[in-house]
Computed example of a mutant assay.
Amino acid sequence: MPGRSRRRPDLTLPLPQRDLTSLAVPLPLPPSSAPSSMSSSGSLSGAASLGAPTSAGSAPPNPPPPLCELERVRCIGSGAGGTVWMVRHRTTGCAYALKVLYGKHDDAVRRQIVREVAILRTAEHPAVVRCHGMYELDGELQILLEYMDGGSLEGHRIADERFLAHLARQVLSGIAYLHRRHIVHRDIKPSKLLIDSGRRVKIADFGVGRILNQIMDPCNSSVGSIAYMSPERINTDLNDGAYDGYAGDIWSFGLTILEVYLGRFPLGENLTKQGDWAALMSAICHSDSPQAPRDASPEFKNFISLCLQKNPANRPTALRLLQHPFVALPQPQLHMRVTDE
């Protein structure tokens, strides 16, 4: 109606910023005084010399193979931050994923990425993609990662609850591991969950990926991630302005599992995760939490309901969710049926 205000005083919409001096980094950073050195093969040296924290008596990760011994086989992905190649070590035949970061970064950003990679190299869990190391060639940074031959869960559907429980149990174990190490992912979604032919599911792209998104194109690259943000992270007036990153990961995880089950983004029939970011924010904060469909099992309905509680204090931890009856379903014996949607 004419003259009616369209402003929503109860909704605050944070705008992306390019302030590189205060990047939101989800991983704890070691002291910046630790030096980094370059090997003759073009790879950055071991994690200990990069300042990565190591526990008493633990050995630093093995150095990655020389960059000159890696043969690029094919491109397996690309985005605003860089291109990912499947590469093969000529000597051993081992396959890896090599993430080549676009452009040359200033010293502050480079140091931050180096320190992040050093910490990622110490993360070792069956449900977390391994980071083997990093190279620098002519100012270009390249990160060597574990190769997952099944790609991501983006655009796929798993309607069998037994398989979904098998997937959820693995991801939850990885989240619980990261949270025990005081690492918050902050960007869990289907494209960050990678699978292989052995039905293993692993969490990928935490730490460095978020730094690059903010540097390369914060306005465009953030839209897809906004779709999986928890209400209290978007509207800072909720929960008295306090944000619990661990509870935020549980919301994103629950929304991701429901999307994989449905084969579509679950927040509204006509709302897509690549749609208008303001509409996404409003729906997340003011609409009812999405629910599992009526024909789903009671265990799955309750599991999703717990993950998608609007009040973050009511969301169980990853460790608690691992005890839920849904993820305690018997492990399937058949091959995982994953369909494209």
Score class of each variant (00 low, 15 high):
L308R: 07
Q309C: 08
M281D: 00
R294D: 15
R294Q: 14
F326C: 06
V338H: 01
Q331C: 09
H324E: 05
F303V: 07
C285G: 07
N314M: 14
F300Q: 02
L319K: 10
C285F: 00
R320H: 08
L308Y: 10
H335R: 10
L322F: 10
Q309E: 05
L322R: 11
A292Q: 08
N314V: 09
P330D: 15
N311E: 08
P290G: 07
V338N: 01
Q331N: 02
L329I: 05
R337H: 07
L306D: 04
I304Y: 00
L334N: 12
S282V: 07
P290K: 05
Q291L: 07
D295Q: 10
L319M: 13
A283Y: 02
K310V: 02
A296T: 14
C307E: 04
R337P: 00
R315H: 06
Q331K: 04
A313N: 01
P290E: 08
P290W: 12
F300V: 03
H335K: 05
S282N: 11
S289Q: 02
A292P: 00
P290F: 12
R294N: 12
S305L: 00
P330I: 05
P332L: 13
K301R: 15
L308T: 14
A283M: 04
H286K: 13
Q333E: 15
N311I: 01
H335P: 03
C307P: 03
K301H: 15
H286V: 10
C285W: 00
